[in-house]
Design a protein around this nucleic acid. Structure first.
Lengths: 168, 168
DNA sequence: CCGACATGGTTGTTCCGTCAACTTATGATC
DNA sequence: GATCATAAGTTGACGGAACAACCATGTCGG
């Protein structure tokens, strides 16, 4: 079955979007790795925990907010626990569940890593855009997420209102 | 040194961009894998070769156009060669260089995979956007690539002069 | 309550990407 | 034309991610 091919404009936009998604992870990862010994994903795990009351989240919720599969998160959290940045403990409410708690060292790690990370985000990304373009980026990505995240699994990451329904 | 933190708008745009870059690769990879047994990156390697005269490119050029490091491309091309989709041969002009040629089977693989891939790109990405939003996406990603690809390494991927068609 | 099913996590395998080291060829310099 | 530096690719080791299999716990219908 022959699909509708892409128009000139669509193709141009699409190829650039692909290029951005290819390049962005590398930029974030290498800066964080070099300066803080953290993967971008590890940083996000710690950051998500640091923004939440008591700095505790159940593995499932944490996985949703970081767009990780449970196996992936399990491995990462185990490594972070080995490094003393996170503490795992059984959830009292549900014998199956595990809580991941950010330790004091974990807090320190996030606070140490944050400035350099934010600086990279500024210089490599946001400073390239005019204020109207920032607004446009927000609107476009919002629309894209409808197609990419139809169940709102990641909504905790970008939409505080929907976070309560899905991640709370 | 304390960085400038992100404004409300910047943070919103940034978090959504991160969410998009987290989700998009998985969407593309799983469709291509399931339907064609190809990684998105493998598909792009084959697609880039298919769009070029004689379907030959030197490894270095191919690496630039796909934003791959040379080691990564070398590994991928070896696997593709094992599957009969690509043929490697020494470059007559430069004894150090290697040419990668798309085989007939490789052409067939791209042509088989393309419709499903384009369909996914449409349904999951482009159809979520209005025409003005497609235009905005193009402009914003163009600006972003200045910061992410300062040397223009990937320009072959999105520069209209060098890239004529995609997915066909 | 008891058996079937669903949910929450972990573990192990396999594959892919990165990094560093190495081989070979080219180009510049004297 | 010999030497040294650089470029093009390959290879191997290592770490992280996807996937599948598995175990433990909770839930629901009889």
């Amino acid at each position: 079955m022959e699909p509708r091919w892409l128009s000139q404009d669509e193709r141009a936009a699409w190829l650039r979007l692909v290029a951005v998604t290819e390049l962005l992870p590398g930029v974030l990862d290498s800066q964080l790795r070099a300066d803080s010994g953290l993967t971008h994903f590890e940083y996000y795990v710690l950051a998500m925990l640091s923004e939440v009351p008591d700095r505790v989240l159940r593995m499932t919720v944490l996985a949703q907010r970081t767009n990780a599969t449970l196996p992936r998160l399990s491995h990462v959290v185990r490594r972070l626990e080995d490094r003393g940045l996170v503490q795992r403990s059984p959830c009292p409410d549900d014998g199956r569940a595990t809580n991941a708690t950010l330790t004091a060292e974990g807090v320190a790690a996030v606070e140490t890593a944050a400035p350099g990370h934010v600086d990279t985000v500024r210089r490599r990304v946001l400073d390239q855009l005019t204020p109207p373009q920032v607004q446009a980026l927000r609107e476009v990505t919002d629309a894209l997420l409808v197609g990419l995240d139809p169940d709102g699994r990641l909504s905790g990451l970008y939409d505080p209102d929907r976070a309560q329904r899905h991640g709370g």
